[in-house]
């Protein structure tokens, strides 16, 4: 479990993280979603003790990260797959941490196998790795100590579609076994597919958080009709906000059942009526971050 309490980080006059609080629970994948520069990485660095917060505190498995006696065994961290000494081989990077954590040597080969890095690739220097290989090595490194908590910053970056699928299954499996998985991404689709809980951050502030179901529910209803103007008028009367997203297509901020009832009462035939689930999170994400982004531009 990861708990972040009122964490704020300012650089001079710039507030990178502004009073951020959230919890990532055991047995669940928590997605940390936000556009670039929203404060995701800064928050994760604060959780892992690499950046001192201006105020607030963060705890992992009930303790400050720095108070964990051997953190690698409890928390697997991947913040930047490229942040490795370019002159070291992949295997050597794992060997160093395996030695430091006091793990059996065999663990290195197990992890290399798990992330499908061949012995030949593991013997190459990281400078010659593709981003995808670095990402796999980073995940192998995070899993080395068999931790119950995983903190991953943009782990899908640079992976091919098969790799993304593989990682998604891996994280799902970890969470299903009771681990806490916190991963950040600016890729909406990634988070939508894998996360149970979602935290949306924009300009350093949390703009939405909840279970995926909750957040998607608020995305409203998608419907198609040949009489959009009439239906909009009827919805207005019922007090439901709606907007035309493309000709004949409406998005309504209300439950599909209620919207259906309004259409029936107004005797307006519908062609399609369903929860606005496809790309719902994307709309929410853009919507939620648009305001803060404008604010940022004006400031």
């Amino acid at each position: 479990m990861i708990t972040v309490e009122s964490v704020t980080k300012t650089y001079g006059g710039f507030t990178a993280v502004d009073d951020v609080s959230f919890t990532a629970s055991a047995g669940r994948v928590t997605g940390f979603l936000g556009p670039n520069g929203a404060g995701k990485s800064t928050t994760l660095r604060i959780v892992t003790g690499l950046t001192p917060p201006t105020s607030g505190s963060a705890h992992v498995v009930g303790r400050r990260f720095a108070d964990l006696p051997n953190p690698g065994l409890e928390v697997g961290v991947l913040l930047d797959a490229s942040a490795q000494h370019a002159g070291r081989t992949g295997r050597e990077i794992l060997r160093l941490s395996q030695q430091m954590m006091g793990l059996p040597r065999s663990r290195v080969d197990e992890m290399l196998e798990l992330v499908s890095l061949t012995p030949d690739e593991a013997g190459r220097r990281v400078r010659d790795y593709s981003l995808g290989m670095r990402q796999r090595l980073g995940i192998a490194h995070a899993l080395l100590g068999d931790p119950d908590v995983l903190i991953l910053d943009e782990p899908a970056n640079g992976l091919d579609p098969a790799g993304i699928r593989w990682m998604r299954d891996l994280l799902r499996g970890y969470a299903d076994r009771g681990a806490t998985v916190l991963l950040s991404s600016h890729l909406l689709h990634e988070i939508e597919v894998v996360a149970d809980d979602i935290i949306v951050i924009g300009n350093g502030r949390i703009v939405a958080h909840g279970t995926k179901a909750e957040l998607l529910a608020s995305a409203g209803t998608h419907l198609r009709t040949r009489h959009p103007a009439d239906l909009q008028a009827a919805l207005d009367v019922a007090g439901m906000a709606s907007n035309v997203t493309s000709p004949g297509v409406l998005r309504v901020d209300a439950d599909p059942e209620l919207v259906g009832r309004v259409a029936t009462d107004a005797r307006i035939p519908l062609i399609e009526l369903r929860p606005a689930e496809t790309a719902g999170l994307e709309e929410m994400f853009l919507e939620l971050t648009a305001d803060t982004q404008r604010e940022g531009a004006a400031a």
Partner: peptide
Amino acid sequence: TAEWTQRSGLTTFTIVPH
């Protein structure tokens, strides 16, 4: 300096957070 220039400190200081 390698911990900063090569950025391996990200690993070093999360494995040993002191």
